[in-house]
């Protein structure tokens, strides 16, 4: 109850700051909260908005599917094989700090202008943190679990399925949380340039036509969805970590 009240207060404070900024900056740069929500309500009623939204979430869905399955697979394998993990780690960390946007021209040439380029950009943003977290998750498993598995004569498949994966799940969810926001970032960046569809494109188009309320409305709706999914993952994350002791 207390938490809900705190969150409401925070939202109220943000809205006040927003309104204040609007008074300072004026119509050309910002829309007021009221204008924004009115525009958002209009957009939600137009079919073309839903076409853009479904394009974005379709791309996000595919990108997440690829980033999560490949990322966790690679991460678990690297975590289990010590030498490979040690070789891969510095490479991954430098790839992680590389601004992926510099690869955008290459991706455009490889995947063309359609949805696949957005998916690819989402994947390269999200997959590396997922690999790093999954690898760390396996390495952090208590050695006594592996010993127990050997005493119980588990096969390699049983070891992965019934010990490694469940033991790693709390950390895997942390990786998923970070991976999710970066994948969404990648997809949206992909839509902002050389794209004709998606919410990222809609934002850029509104900037081009100086349609500030539309721009703000899309940004706010995207932020709400991202915050909602992130909080769900965070909640799951905390719950799992508490149980893991």
């Amino acid at each position: 109850m207390r938490q809900i009240l705190d969150s409401l207060l925070l939202v109220l404070a943000l809205a006040l700051v927003w309104q204040g900024l609007y008074w300072l900056a004026g119509d050309l740069a910002l829309a007021s909260p009221a204008q924004t929500f009115a525009r958002a309500a209009e957009l939600l009623a137009t079919p073309s908005f839903w076409r853009h939204a479904s394009e974005t979430f379709l791309a996000l869905g595919y990108a997440l599917l690829i980033a999560v399955t490949a990322g966790m697979g690679i991460g678990l394998a690297l975590g289990m094989h010590r030498l490979s993990g040690e070789v891969a780690e510095p490479v991954l960390v430098s790839l992680y700090s590389l601004p992926k946007i510099t690869l955008y021209p290459v991706i455009l040439l490889l995947f063309g202008l359609g949805i696949s380029a957005k998916i690819a950009l989402g994947v390269i943003h999200g997959i590396i943190p997922i690999i790093i977290f999954s690898m760390g998750a396996v390495r952090a498993i208590a050695p006594v679990y592996f010993k127990t598995a050997r005493v119980l004569r588990l096969s390699r498949g049983q070891l992965v399925r019934t010990v490694i994966v469940p033991a790693a799940i709390p950390e895997l969810v942390s990786g998923l949380r970070v991976g999710f926001s970066l994948t969404l970032l990648g997809v949206l960046i992909g839509e902002m340039f050389a794209s004709q569809r998606g919410l990222g494109y809609l934002v850029m188009k509104s900037i081009g036509t100086l349609d500030v309320p539309t721009m703000m409305a899309v940004i706010v709706m995207l932020a709400l969805v991202a915050v909602l999914i992130s909080s769900l993952l965070l909640y799951l994350d905390h719950r799992l970590h508490r149980r893991a002791l």
Partner: peptide
């Protein structure tokens, strides 16, 4: 190289799986 059937081991560390 491997634990033969018929041997059981109890370790000092907490080896109970927290997810079960």
């Amino acid at each position: 190289g491997s634990v033969p059937p018929g041997i059981g081991v109890v370790f000092q560390e907490n080896a109970a799986f927290p997810w079960l």
